[in-house]
């Protein structure tokens, strides 16, 4: 009997090591295969110039339009997302009492919103845009991506805001501060969470393709107004890979490298911030 259980233990441990190895392998394989294919093709011209004439037939040029378009959308969505989510988190954690019913329903709803796929956000955003007579544009894409990342912002900041010791809020109240004036304390306390939530949201926003597919469209030029269509990095990868021309496909791999690098940098800086950014935080 004893022997059997030991053998079982050994076997299961082996499987577990195998699982860990698989996870590490998957990460390495995804990142390295993209890099291996894309890095040799990456050139300064590609990240610094717009698509030239006959680009999708193998003409010259780069995908600066996609890089800039992505930054426009992500920048706009992140700012709007922060403006909307910080007050919501504050409302949930300071204005509402602990274990309030509305609070728990709201948190559940944000969880659900977080789970809804971006293609549904895209389809919904698209119908709304048609309703208002809007065409695919920078504005439309930014709004949909904003909606997409609001639940991420709220959930990850709320997770930390919930752990603020009630004594801290009470200390502020007992000095005669109103709830609104207590915001400065809450913000200081969750500053690292705001930073990591921002990085998380940027990562999700920059990688999202299904949401902007309908709503931002695609364009070879850098948009100069909110109503123009704009390219994005993921869609640039996706569309170029569909081309039969090998040269165009090559550019897709190069764009994939750029996208991966951005996401890796975001993920690493997220970790660093988590460790460093807590100067004033009270444990």
């Amino acid at each position: 009997m004893v022997k059997r259980s030991i053998i079982e233990e050994k076997f299961m441990k082996l499987f577990m090591y195998a699982s860990i190895a698989l996870v590490v392998f998957f990460v390495a394989s995804v990142v390295l295969s993209v890099f291996k294919r894309g890095i040799p093709l990456l050139s300064w011209e590609m990240v610094s110039s717009l698509p030239g004439g006959g680009f999708y037939m193998g003409g010259g040029g780069g995908f600066l339009n996609a890089i800039v378009g992505s930054f426009y959308i992500v920048g706009g969505a992140t700012v709007m997302g922060l403006i909307i989510s910080i007050p919501v988190v504050f409302f949930l954690n300071v204005y509402l009492k602990a274990n309030s019913r509305f609070g728990s329903i709201a948190r559940l709803a944000y969880d659900v919103l977080f789970g809804i796929p971006s293609i549904v956000y895209g389809a919904f955003g698209f119908t709304i845009m048609i309703y208002f007579g809007l065409r695919a544009s920078l504005l439309g894409g930014t709004i949909v991506v904003t909606l997409l990342i609001i639940p991420i912002f709220i959930r990850s900041m709320d997770e930390v805001a919930k752990t603020i010791p009630s004594e801290l809020l009470e200390a502020s109240y007992s000095l005669g501060a109103t709830r609104l004036e207590t915001i400065s304390i809450v913000i200081r306390q969750i500053a690292p969470a705001i930073a990591t939530a921002t990085l998380l949201s940027i990562g999700r926003a920059i990688g999202d393709a299904a949401g902007v597919l309908f709503t931002a469209g695609f364009s070879d030029r850098i948009p100069t107004s909110l109503t123009q269509q704009t390219a994005t990095l993921p869609l640039s990868v996706y569309f170029q890979l569909q081309s039969p021309s090998l040269e165009v496909q090559d550019r897709a791999y190069a764009a994939a490298v750029v996208l991966t690098l951005i996401v890796l940098v975001l993920s690493i800086s997220g970790r660093i911030i988590m460790n460093r950014f807590s100067r004033n935080k009270i444990q």
Binding site: P165, E167, L168, E170, A171, S172, S174, I185, R188, Q189, N280, K281, I282
Partner: peptide, 9 residues
């Protein structure tokens, strides 16, 4: 307060 509770500043 019950426990020392400096504000985060």
């Amino acid at each position: 307060p019950q426990r020392p509770c400096p504000l985060p500043m």
